[in-house]
Design a protein around this nucleic acid. Structure first.
Lengths: 325, 325
DNA sequence: TTGTAGGCGTTATCAC
DNA sequence: GTGATAACGCCTACAA
């Protein structure tokens, strides 16, 4: 019997009219010898690899670990492979090239500013951005500006008037949006946030430590600090512990993202929760939709709502606590 | 000019004798049109995909995130792609199949007991195990038994005599080895560790919380507890905080792995440090060696030394602290 | 219902 | 030096 006949049977092509006898014989033998089609060869002729690339900046940040995890799950369920690329600040292009050379059907880019990638490299490639809205590409993002608003609203409601903000010094738009949302809402409500209490830090725990030390040294020190992500918030938390500043008695601290570590520290970190796995999962679904031709590449920009999670680091400002208590 | 001629030039094949003129012309045009060879097609004829698979059980455990990160880095540098598979407790085989179908040149398996995978699936496949010594496959592992010894030595030296142990209830040998090393060393030194103070927990923070609550409720409660990994140690840490048990005054707590979170909690977690990124990096190097034919698949079993990191949760037992102080 | 022919993008082996 | 030709493993017409 010929090879294409076998192929017809094995691909379960519906319009194949095959003798029941041969079909069974083929299936049985295939089973016996443990035949498995070569996906590479399939990809070559189909001009589709059924693989996607995921570009992230280090999984040591649990945020991206979760995004990645969510992405991997739905990709795997859909039969797609995930090619992993972890980029530093500069080598994004190489990784992207490597992925293209391997004929990925599309890529998901998280935590790397799309603007730092030359558009020519993204051309005729299916792209979904995570956490960075864009007019050129599809994106799935948490609503960062709203997160900033929510942070402000929560702290204002507690009675705070003097605020600080710590934001990572990266070109990722999400952080700028959080900052903008926060500062706007604060100012609109008549709160104050001086330019020196608005500090940039490295996007890491250590960065948060350094930044918080700066804030603590300020005259007219803020009574509430919002951090653009939990990692720096935890650094800030640590710095307060080291400096003997009690949370939330002397200072309220609010993070953003909601990573697990946040509930390990004492007091537990209050934060604005972003749906991390969901971001990854949706990004892949969106990408698949584009691949299946169901969606136009640039049309979609999903925005997911954040959620306030009050734990132990936010409370009333010191001047509003009765002295007697 | 013919297509194979072009191929000869582009692959920089040294034994190609080509007219300088044509060569330059080809290179120039290739540059202009941005030609990039199709790695899939290359893989098809070379019968090598230059891709490896990495199987891990969830990156939400920072330990594996780091292993993965180390692995990705050296793979990328060597021009290999990394296909990611995150498996639950049961679907290891499917993922493995998917990877094979994509013709990966080899796989790295971390955190999934190789014994739960049918050997037939691993046959004629290059495998490197992370953190599980094996006589069948190459492996790279931290020295878990020694870690157990070191833990015991440290706590014994501080003066402890009554010990507890919390270990994840997974079939991963590393944890058994840590337990065995610990218990052996304790008993050899005349310390005691009752069977009820040797508890199994889910390999997560929550698991650690539950297990520690059990230990705290024991009559003749241990004065020092060793946890088989930092995640459960942090859970235990949290449980102590919740129960008002002061660390290390009333209880000494020692973890294993050394994940970053450990230095976020107060007091910071003492631990036995395992070289996580290094495990991933070495695993890939070993795999590549096998692929290049430099090493025999089953021969190598690298064992990396752990390191004691004393931070804030280990100290003298309560009965040895002078009451007056 | 089955077999034949062609091609996906490469590389390798030869004659020319 | 160069250019056919075959092969990698698979799929899709189309012809038998």
């Amino acid at each position: 019997m010929s090879q294409p006949t076998v192929s017809l049977i094995l691909t379960r092509n519906p319009k194949a009219r095959i003798a029941q006898a041969t079909r069974e014989r083929v299936l049985k033998i295939a089973e016996e010898i443990g035949y498995r089609p070569n996906r590479l060869a399939q990809a070559l002729v189909a001009r589709r690899s059924f693989a996607i690339g995921v570009i992230v900046p280090g999984f040591d940040n649990p945020f991206y670990a979760h995004v990645l995890s969510g992405a991997e799950k739905v990709a795997a369920e859909a039969g797609y492979a995930v090619l992993l690329a972890e980029t530093g600040p500069t080598d994004g292009v190489q990784h992207l090239r490597a992925l293209r050379d391997r004929q990925v059907d599309g890529v998901i880019i998280a935590g790397v500013a799309a603007t730092t990638l030359p558009p020519s490299e993204l051309e005729d490639l299916n792209v979904v951005l995570v956490n960075q809205p864009s007019s050129r590409y599809a994106s799935v993002a948490g609503d960062s500006e709203r997160a900033g608003h929510m942070a402000a609203a929560h702290l204002l409601e507690l009675g705070h008037r003097r605020f600080g903000f710590i934001g990572p010094a990266t070109p990722i738009p999400a952080f700028r949006l959080r900052e903008r949302g926060f500062v706007q809402a604060i100012r609109a409500a008549g709160g104050s946030i001086s330019s020196e209490s608005l500090v940039r830090a490295e996007a890491s725990i250590e960065g948060g430590v350094v930044a918080m030390r700066r804030l603590l040294g300020l005259r007219g020190r803020p009574t509430a600090v919002f951090c653009a992500n939990d990692l720096v918030a935890l650094g800030a938390h640590k710095a307060c512990g080291g400096a003997g500043v009690s949370l939330p008695g002397e200072l309220s601290l609010l993070g953003c993202d909601d990573i697990e570590m946040g509930s390990l520290v004492t007091p537990e970190l209050s934060t604005i929760s972003m749906p991390q796995r969901e971001l990854g999962a949706r990004a892949v679904r969106q990408l698949l939709r584009q691949l299946e031709g169901t969606a136009v590449p640039t049309s979609a920009a999903q925005v997911l709502p954040p959620k306030l999670v009050v734990r132990g680091t936010t409370g009333r400002p010191p001047d509003l606590l009765e002295p007697g208590r």
